[in-house]
Design a protein around this nucleic acid. Sequence first.
RNA 1: CGGGGCGUAGCGCAGCCUGGUAGCGCGACGGCUUUGGGUGCCGUAGGCCGCGAGUUCGAAUCUCGCCGCCCCGACCA
Length: 455
Amino acid sequence: MRLSQYFLPVLKENPAEAQIVSHRLMLRAGMIRQQAAGIYSWLPLGWRVLKRIERIVHEEQQRAGHIPLLMPTLQPAELWRESGRYDDYGQEMLRITDRHKRELLYGPTNEEMITDIFRSAIGSYRDLPLTLYHVQWKFRDEMRPRFGVMRGREFLMKDGYNFDLTKEAALHAYNRHLVSYLRTYERMGLQAIPMRADSGPIGGEDTHEFLVLADTGESEVFYDSEITDLRFGDRQIDYADETQCRAVLEEFTSRYARTDETHDEALFAQIPEARRRKARGIEVGQIFYFGTKYSEPMGAVVVGPDGSRQPVHMGSHGIGVSRLLGAIIEASHDERGIIWPEGVTPFPVGIVNLKQGDAATDGACEALYAALAERGLEALYDDRDERAGAKFATMDLIGLPWRITAGPRGLASNTVELTNRRTGETEVLSPADAVERVAAAYAPVKAREYPVAVG
RNA sequence: CGGGGCGUAGCGCAGCCUGGUAGCGCGACGGCUUUGGGUGCCGUAGGCCGCGAGUUCGAAUCUCGCCGCCCCGACCA
């Protein structure tokens, strides 16, 4: 993409309404625009990152064997009366009446609807296990939206639902989700720690929240410092294998890690003092096992191998896709701007032309741009007629992980500069070598991709 | 929903107390300058001063009502 032809309305000054760093940077980098309290337009740069994150979520869901579909944003109130949540959910649920005076609601989650879909089509244990998910906009009419996309009213969320014959099978689904979530967050450059949590309005017995440690987090968390040493890495897991999945769950949940809702001082005190940590965290996902809470009242039953009809065991699992942008920025920025992890960056690399209009420099930049594209790397090429300082400031603000700087001085000896946004380290090398280095930097990112039809 | 605050140019703000017909910086646009960290200078455009009533010869300014947004708290993915 040539910056001269893109839409990137960056701001030099901080908008007054933004209090926390991720909100400020998203506004300044021209990623979002607020349209109402807690409701945002996604401008091109923000949209790109949102879609990158969404794609990773899709890939990891499908790698785990989960099946994508799409449910509507508006739901009939009737479904929610069946589960009893229409009244329980309270003012956070946005209720709408159509021209026929029929009651609708803008879905805050989809347990009822997915259960309805399931019961209408599935009647036999032979169709189990089944996990369906979608990535869809949700609405919760927060009393007080704040922190930009971290606590908006409209938000993009992946929510998935598993259907299993037995509790044991459903717990495997739970474990499988935990594993897939660990891999998902790591691909985004995040460490998200599973913590024992409260089930809230979803209800249920087992639940873990995934938290990204950040000073601006809304939750107070307590954990054993050993947990932050754990990495999922590139290990290969057979998602169908119950033992493997359970082993990962045990590895990642055996140490103390809880939010303030479930914090237990006595248990916490048993950890050696040097390892006790109290911090703040941003919740970026949650998994639940809730058994037959919805299947029983809503009649989602299957005929078992013994011929008896039994309600299915279910769980639900969410990832806050739009909120993740805020969480990633909170966890990865400096005083100059955002620092995107390579897995989610809107563009893999930026090209700064130091002397726009100079034939040799323009030509070298165009050649770089084309060479990168040949490697499957779409650069953001700053071809504006701006001063070097302005171009650097923009690149730093929007946070592309790599920057290639080309000017007449270096090109005289056939060199450009390759700068790492995170470390600030700069190497002087030939344009061809710069392309190779960037390609090499993204090789691990590409290696982690998982080709899917829907994503 | 309790408490507090703010709505004036795309963004950040002043003007309001003490009514007299709107200003500064950044940004945008044009010109000159020049080119490795938001260059310097000159110029131009851009406002139903959130909306509606009222007081007044006259309202951004005073009064009342409404709407919107932000902050603290409670709540929450």
